Structure formats: structure tokens, C-alpha cells
Simulated scan of single mutants.
Amino acid sequence: MNIAVYEFAGEGMQRVFENEKWTVGIKNWKPANDVTGIDCLERHNKTDELFVLVEGACTLVYANEEKNGLVFGAVHMQPNKVYNIPAALWHNTITRKGTKMILIEDSNTSMNNSDILELKEEQIAELRSLA
């Protein structure tokens, strides 16, 4: 038996380890996660998702559904802290070039139990102001 080592240096996210219970991914900056590229939120309806900022800068943006529409919020991540995105919370990451994060989630998380919400221009502007 040996110790396995995983890495990913490309743009975006790649799952680097997966078993029947959980997945670990490395998420790096990509244009769609830049403050100029953000245009949607996602949610995982059945599973939480964890992020750890390793290097760079990331703002976790999120939205709660209320009677009058979405209410946006943001958390500016600090390195080496674990951030939990609860199941069903609309969210996305806004990153800068050079950002690297670790992502941990249930191995059953997929687009079959997740949703994407395309944002309107005024919503995008609000998220950009929070970042």
C-alpha cells in the first residue's frame, strides 16, 4: 500500500479524489469565476459543500430566497479556514488569478441534484459590488 498524492494546476475545478462517500476537488481561478465573468449562482439541493482557501483571494457570494426575491450576501474567505455551504443555498465563488481552493463534497453531488440560476444584469452588478 502507498500514499497517493493528487494535484491540479489547470483553470477551473477538477475532482482529484473520489470514493463512495465524498469527493475532494481542487478549484483554481477561471474566467467564469472572475469578478468580470460571474453570471450565475448554483445550489446543491441534497448536499453541503466545503471550501478551503489555500492561496489567492476568494469571495463566496450567496443568495437566500425571500418573498421579494433574492437577498445577496458575501463572505471574504481567509486562508486555512473551512467554509460550509449548506445544501440548497444559492452560491458561487468570485476569485482572482492565482487563487487555489480545496473543495470537499458528497460524492453523489451532481447536476442531477443541483440547479443553476442565470442572473440578471442588476443582480450581477450587486454581486460584483459585494466582491
Rank of each mutant, 00 (worst) to 15 (best):
N80K: 09
L60F: 13
E105P: 05
N113L: 04
T59R: 13
N84W: 03
E65S: 11
V82D: 02
C40G: 04
V16S: 05
A32P: 02
E105T: 04
L89A: 05
C40I: 00
P79S: 10
T23N: 10
L89D: 03
V35I: 12
A63H: 01
F51T: 05
K67F: 11
N80L: 14
G73R: 12
T47S: 15
F17D: 06
I102E: 04
E126Y: 02
E49V: 07
D39N: 12
Q78S: 14
F8M: 11
S110I: 05
V71N: 06
P31Q: 13
V75F: 14
L89N: 05
L117G: 00
T99V: 08
E49Q: 13
E118I: 02
N2K: 15
N108E: 13
K27C: 12
V5N: 07
Y62K: 11
F8W: 10
L50W: 07
R15G: 10
E20M: 09
E18N: 11
W90D: 00
K21H: 14
D115K: 04
D34W: 08
A131L: 04
E126I: 01
L41H: 02
N45V: 04
I85E: 04
W90A: 07
T59H: 15
K67R: 11
E42M: 02
A4C: 08
L103S: 12
A57L: 11
F51S: 04
N64L: 08
L127V: 04
L127W: 00
G73E: 07
D115W: 01
D106K: 15
F8A: 05
I26H: 07
L130E: 04
G37C: 03
K81H: 13
N45L: 15
E11W: 08
T59L: 11
K67P: 09
I116L: 06
V35G: 01
G37H: 09
F17L: 08
D39V: 05
I104E: 03
K46E: 11
I85S: 07
K100N: 09
L119W: 00
L60N: 13
I85Y: 10
I38Q: 03
Y83V: 10
V71H: 07
E20G: 08
K97I: 02
M13Q: 10
Y62A: 12
A57R: 12
L127H: 03
G98K: 09
S110K: 02
Y83W: 09
K21V: 04
V52R: 02
R43V: 04
I124T: 01
E65M: 06
S107N: 10
T59Y: 11
V82R: 03
C40Y: 01
F72N: 00
K67G: 05
E122I: 00
A63G: 07
K100Y: 08
T23A: 15
R96H: 11
T99D: 06
K100I: 07
E66W: 02
N64M: 10
W29I: 00
S110F: 04
F51G: 06
V5G: 03
K81Y: 13
E7M: 12
W29A: 06
H76G: 07
